[in-house]
Nucleic acid binder design. Structure first.
Lengths: 198, 198
DNA sequence: ACCTGAACACCGTTCAAGT
DNA sequence: ACCTGAACACCGTTCAAGT
């Protein structure tokens, strides 16, 4: 999980100098583990085997580190998912796969959750606005492809996305409240049927 | 907005001693404004015109203050809403009112959002589990009253509640992504129709 | 160019002393 | 019984000095 440079593999016994990307990756990891509050310079420095002073060579302050981590997040948690799903030609099946990923990621990746809660932070708010527009646009386009008129497609896309978000949050905070195993598949099928019905 | 005691009205010029309830109310307010991180002893002390030392007379530590604030939250943000809606005899209309409150509170009250994101905190997790069970149980019972078999009622209740949660989150973090005014009413009607259709 | 180490401000916690 | 004020540890930030 530690941020490693590609060029020269580095182990804890003989470590090289750090790059800004090392700090940003470590920050994104920390954000997933403990939210924005866990993006703390001193603990990260300890984890990377450096001093706080080193950090301030690469970044002007903690806020700049958060910004860099957020840029990585936009790539990893939105574009990567959309790219992965884009190969599937049937829009109904694409929708199904998107929702399945939601259910699967809900337990694993708490970053969406912690970022939504940190919307008061200006940099977080800006990243959220971009990511939300991108996701809602993508899902609405799916419903358009399925044959719904534009207005209805946006509404259904919004319902699908809010349900996705809420599901992710519950999976992170209160996992026992979500159906499990076969019951989860039945639930998901029911949701998709409800969303796709004319 | 400041926590005031009922007995002796207190203004800033001649303030009395503080009670544990004063600190808990101030903590809940702060939580709404800036999340768990904003429940900070020193700033709260400043706001209440007392010293940090005073705080440690009423509470053993910051964690105990969080616990007290969470108890207030369970009352205010769950029981109060359920009580308010309970008067309405028609279950379909009760559902409608619940979702309307969701849409209205989404802009105003970010406490659900910040608490869901703080699920890593053990006390928060316990409060969330209780509140989630209570809310899901209530909504599922609504669908049972509407005539759905138990399994289907739970599924629809979960879809309704996750959509509610996601809607609240978006309303807080990216309000411009939600429909507004008349469009919001149309959206809400569509969602309810979708949820209630056999 | 990149990093260390010491310094200082801010908040959590403790505690002896005040009323 | 309730509170103050000083003390100390932890993390953000700065900066002079090292390699």
């Amino acid at each position: 999980m530690a941020a490693q440079r590609a060029k020269t593999p580095r182990d804890s016994s003989a470590r090289q100098r750090l790059t800004a990307a090392d700090w940003a990756d470590a920050a994104l990891t920390a954000m997933g583990e403990g939210g924005l509050a866990a993006v703390a310079v001193e603990p990260l420095a300890a984890r990377l085997g450096a001093t706080k002073g080193s950090f301030y060579w690469h970044f002007s302050n903690r806020d700049a580190l958060i910004e860099a981590a957020l840029e990585r997040w936009e790539e990893v948690d939105t574009e990567a998912v959309i790219t992965e799903v884009a190969a599937e030609p049937d829009p109904g099946e694409r929708l199904r796969r998107l929702l399945l990923m939601a259910a699967n990621r809900s337990a694993a990746d708490p970053r969406d959750v912690s970022l939504l809660a940190s919307a008061a932070h200006p940099r977080v708010a800006a990243a959220l606005a971009r990511v939300t527009a991108r996701r809602l646009g993508y899902v609405a386009a799916l419903f358009t492809e399925l044959g719904f008129p534009e207005d209805e497609a946006r509404h259904r896309g919004l319902l699908a996305y809010t349900a996705f978000l809420g599901h992710t949050h519950l999976g992170h905070a209160v996992p026992q409240s979500l159906p499990d195993g076969a019951a989860r598949d039945r639930y998901l099928d029911g949701v998709i049927e409800t969303l796709v019905r004319p």
